[in-house]
Design a protein around this nucleic acid. Sequence first.
DNA 1: CAACAGTTTAGAACTATTCCAAACTATTTT
DNA 2: AAAATAGTTTGGAATAGTTCTAAACTGTTG
Lengths: 140, 140
Amino acid sequence: MTRERSYSGLIARLKVGGLRPTRQRLALARLLFEREDRHLTAEQLHSEALEADVRVSVATVYNTLHQFTKVGLLREVVVEPGRSYFDTNVDDHHHFYFESTGDLQDIPKDQLHVAELPEPPGGTRIARVDVVVRVQDIEP
Amino acid sequence: MTRERSYSGLIARLKVGGLRPTRQRLALARLLFEREDRHLTAEQLHSEALEADVRVSVATVYNTLHQFTKVGLLREVVVEPGRSYFDTNVDDHHHFYFESTGDLQDIPKDQLHVAELPEPPGGTRIARVDVVVRVQDIEP
DNA sequence: CAACAGTTTAGAACTATTCCAAACTATTTT
DNA sequence: AAAATAGTTTGGAATAGTTCTAAACTGTTG
Ligand SMILES: [Mn+2]
Ligand SMILES: [Mn+2]
Ligand SMILES: [Zn+2]
Ligand SMILES: [Zn+2]
């Protein structure tokens, strides 16, 4: 029922964002949100969709990821050039980035504090603070 | 003389890294290090080189930036997908990122503290902690 | 100065992402 | 419930940043 509730809640959130609950969006939403928090690239999500027999184009995967991000269902995380990760955890938190595998792992916000943030220049305000803890294998 | 000293010091550092001080590398080094700290992309550096009548190919700009990074003269900073910045400041520090302009600005390490860093998983160690403070214009 | 290893280069190739315009579908209107 | 409308999907072309390639070139060493 948690599943059902979050799923119909999702339809509601799409509607609020002015997004129609189409076959493709709902299928992608299941893949994204019916598991624990995930960090995935567009390509990864597209592969998962194909494996799950959800026929959807790459263009639609990109469209959907960006639309979900705009509506606040996802968050975009950048840790390496040429590849965007989308994060199903939209709470305030940070990341471990494993350089050897390319994986991301959440660091809950109570486990890492950023102190003494300087004021941003006049006319601007802080949109977000991202901390990436880059981790590498010992003895590489 | 600060200039001269850092310049010949640079030749030395290249040699240590096993890099020959070629016409191209020295010209690019001037553009990179004879001013205050900078954050630039390969394309930007290439343009500056052409403007300064330094004939050098894009491939060489990329090669050089990566080699300088490996030798510790530069640091690579990733803040948005599809674009790498190279930072002439290799001291421990963090960044403001201005979303409207794409500019980066240093935050010296004594002006921002990361506390309570969790332990990385076994078999791994922290290579670097990057904090990006994303800033946007008020009234966009 | 020869010999060698390292370097540069133009252009092709590659990768992730975005764009396009036509076909399609959910929703609203009649 | 059919028609009209606006939003959505799609394959394929296009783009942008970066990397690769192999041939020509240059710095270093003996
Ligand atoms: Mn994006
Ligand atoms: Mn790189
Ligand atoms: Zn996360
Ligand atoms: Zn910097």
